[in-house]
Design a protein around this nucleic acid. Structure first.
Lengths: 211, 211
DNA sequence: TTGCTATGAATGAACG
DNA sequence: CGTTCATTCATAGCAA
């Protein structure tokens, strides 16, 4: 182990001991964590923007006809999570609690009911949908074979396509047109249990010991 | 010996198995994927913010952002089928394809990608919308006299009395709330053990400019 | 400019 | 659980 301390970068190989490697792994895990959380944060923020922008014609705006009191649940039978609720849900979902147990649902519902009308069924459906959606985005990739190529990253670049010269005048410059399904992290998902990664960023749950 | 230039990688391979190296590569590649997502998300959010603050209720200043041509990296355009694509889709839809999903989607996508940028999601959405639209066109022809029943909207297609989690216009929760989620970010100590990033984690920093 | 219409995309809820 | 349905939102395209 004495040789492993060499802070001299002359020979990387010498410092590449198991310990060093573990450090590397932890660093990577840390970055993964940061990225994951950033993703969720952005998602939450986006949802907020969405909500409040759409709220202008919803309930927030005072509609002379629509009495903001109870008893008027006519239009829109569909539950819509408030920004706060959404954020909480995202957090819980991300935190690895991929275990939507019944008991959990109750707790979450209680928690969320403080921020708006909600029921256990809503929470249940939300988690169901969230998981299904996450999976769908990553299906085409992650073939049964893992040892050959990580073309998943490449697929992001394969979005190259000839410009369809139709009516759109200024779209040619646009980099992306649609968020394709191939872009999804396969490790961050609490549900991606089928991954065969050794270090398994999904395994980073144990990186907590590092910090 | 010209081999004396021995890359670190070569020697590293001695302490790190090829498998481990590959795993690390994948992990790093995964960051690229996540960061891509982040960039995309950020772009979308920025676009939304710009839109609602500048157009909807702002209009305090003219549009300094609409620069036709270059430099326009916000605003995500939605996919628009080319005439050729549309025709193909219509044909497939009309062919009695009552099962418009799954494997078929991939085939159709491949087919259509010959005529323009498209993704499976686009095809999927198109069929979803197409069917829903077709159905709704025929629904109003139920035959009830138009001289009565103004409450039909509520009880027309009453399927189940699932009255759980209704949403009343009252939003007790404020529409806004500070994004305190950032407090969850935790950074690993890069200086731990005195070793810096051994791998090109710096490569990630190229995304830094995006956010 | 402002508004409307058509439609792609997002998502809560239901089905099997 | 995975897929599908139904409703809504946001935006492209056009009209007055």
């Amino acid at each position: 182990m004495e040789e492993g301390v060499a802070e001299e970068g002359a020979v990387c190989a010498k410092v590449m001991t198991d310990e060093q490697m573990e450090v590397l792994r932890k660093q990577i895990a840390a970055y993964a964590t940061i990225c994951e959380q950033l993703v969720e944060m952005h998602r939450a923020i986006a949802a907020q923007q969405d909500s409040l922008s759409g709220m202008r014609l919803g309930s927030l705006c005072s509609d002379p006809l629509m009495a903001p009191g109870v008893g008027k649940l006519s239009s829109r039978q569909r539950w819509t999570p408030t920004p706060t609720q959404l954020q909480i849900l995202e957090t819980i979902f991300y935190e690895g609690n991929g275990t939507p147990s019944k008991q959990k649902i109750k707790e979450i519902t209680s928690e969320l009911s403080q921020h708006g009308q909600i029921s256990e069924t809503n929470v249940y459906n939300w988690f169901q949908n969230r998981r299904a959606r996450s999976k769908r985005k990553k299906q085409p990739a992650a073939g049964p074979n893992a040892a050959d190529s990580e073309a998943e990253v490449e697929s992001l670049n394969e979005k190259k396509a000839k410009a369809h010269g139709n009516l759109s005048p200024t779209v040619d410059d646009g980099p992306f047109q649609s968020p394709d399904i191939s872009s999804e992290l396969r490790f961050a998902d609490p549900e991606s249990n089928g991954s065969r990664s050794m270090f398994a960023l999904g395994d980073i749950s144990k990186y907590g010991d590092a910090f």
